[in-house]
Design a binder for these strands. Structure first.
Lengths: 169, 169
DNA sequence: AGTGAAAAGGCTTTAAC
DNA sequence: GTTAAAGCCTTTTCACT
């Protein structure tokens, strides 16, 4: 097994590259598309026996490659018809400010994604909103209530071309 | 059943608000966290019988609220240790340019998310990269190969505070 | 590592309340 | 919406290669 020391890693205790081969990736590709496929169906696609697929899947779970089984929901059908990307610049870039701000953000349920990025220590946020009025309310009542914002810029999402999923090249 | 006509919707043929109550949301919350929970477990959490949960889940699937069952993968464990947010401004804002550019973007597997946003008709993109060298290669060999880019700005993701999931407030 | 058969258990459906 | 029950199919284990 190839083990390569990695410098960074904020999502794993293991700092080694895992031995994931083409069959594993084939399995993951099937599960990404439909995690309720039966072992027989998976087996037919990847060309291994159901049992082998099962033990590989179990290993992938134990390694944490598969973090969880979940559902993909249609936000619009739940009333969240729009999405807004907000870029926030903070007044202070101290560790404490960054930490406090990040924690406050994570508690807002409408926030779908939130990244601290390099450059000017900005946050990139994507918010799900019911409509423009809801957007205005969210910003005013929730986002701007968090102290420490120097500046923010919003962009409405006009079209979603691709949504999150891990590449398996 | 309350039916309200909606103006926009690019993800659904149905342009009505669906009748989703607190129990449905409770079920969805369980499934988001673990879509392999048994009906008995779900039933215990939401306080309805397994059969009722089952028929509600089936309805949610038919309505398209549940788009698919999938897995949540750890990108870092698959070798994608970093994430970069790229903001792209196009030279032309014609329909054809926007369409062609968007289509070309969607074909790049490393692109995790891609949004066309209002304002200056920019694209917001998040790319999964193996490391900084991989990032440079991706930009040079894939992104910049697409014609029509006026300007682009990259921000490395330093910390992920929250990842995509639909709010169920 | 992969395979195949066999047991244990859950899903799905129907029917009655 | 609920309970009960039946058949079917999966997952999971285990012994073997």
């Amino acid at each position: 097994m190839l083990k390569t020391k990695r410098s960074n890693s904020d999502s794993s205790e293991e700092s080694f590259d895992l031995a994931i081969d083409a069959s594993d990736r084939a399995i993951l590709r099937v599960l990404l598309d439909d995690s309720r496929k039966t072992l027989q169906e998976i087996s037919a696609t990847v060309g291994l026996s159901p049992t082998t697929c099962w033990s590989r899947i179990r290993k992938l779970q134990e390694q944490g490659v598969i973090r969880r089984y979940t559902v993909d929901l249609d936000a619009a059908k739940l009333g969240y018809h729009d999405s807004v990307i907000v870029q926030v610049t903070l007044e202070s870039h101290s560790d404490e400010t960054l930490y406090r701000f990040g924690k406050a953000l994570a508690e807002i349920p409408e926030i779908q994604e939130c990244y601290l990025v390099s450059g000017d220590y900005d946050y990139y946020i994507r918010i799900a909103v019911r409509d423009t009025r809801d957007y205005e309310r969210l910003l005013r009542e929730k986002l701007y209530k968090i102290p420490g914002i120097r500046h923010s810029q919003s962009h409405f999402v006009l079209r979603v071309l691709k949504e999150a999923s891990v590449p398996l090249a």
